[in-house]
């Protein structure tokens, strides 16, 4: 019973972490593209944006994977 519950909570936490990280990555990418499109000479190269999204994704996954489990546990209990 406990194992099932823990596994369910783990799944929710993973989904929430992925979702929030992807959201941040999208914000990052959209902002980058927006900045580039608003200028005649683009500020960010493609490599900047791609590498940046990966880095942002990694950091935000670390942060969200630490935060979400606690929140989900509180909600469920």
């Amino acid at each position: 019973m406990n194992e099932q519950s823990a596994s369910r909570r783990g799944k929710y936490a993973l989904i929430a972490s992925l979702a929030s990280s992807l959201l941040l990555v999208i914000i990052f990418a959209v902002l980058s593209v927006f900045v580039n499109s608003s200028r005649t000479v683009p500020l960010y190269s493609q490599v900047d944006i791609i590498a940046g999204t990966i880095f942002v994704f990694v950091l935000s996954m670390i942060v969200s994977a630490s935060i979400w489990p606690g929140i989900i546990e509180k909600r469920i209990s």
């Binding site: 902002l31 900045v35 950091l59 935000s60 942060v63």
Partner: peptide, 14 residues
Amino acid sequence: VHVLALLAFFFWYF
């Protein structure tokens, strides 16, 4: 620290 690193990254990037 990771939050700070993320914020610093966003600030200096944008």
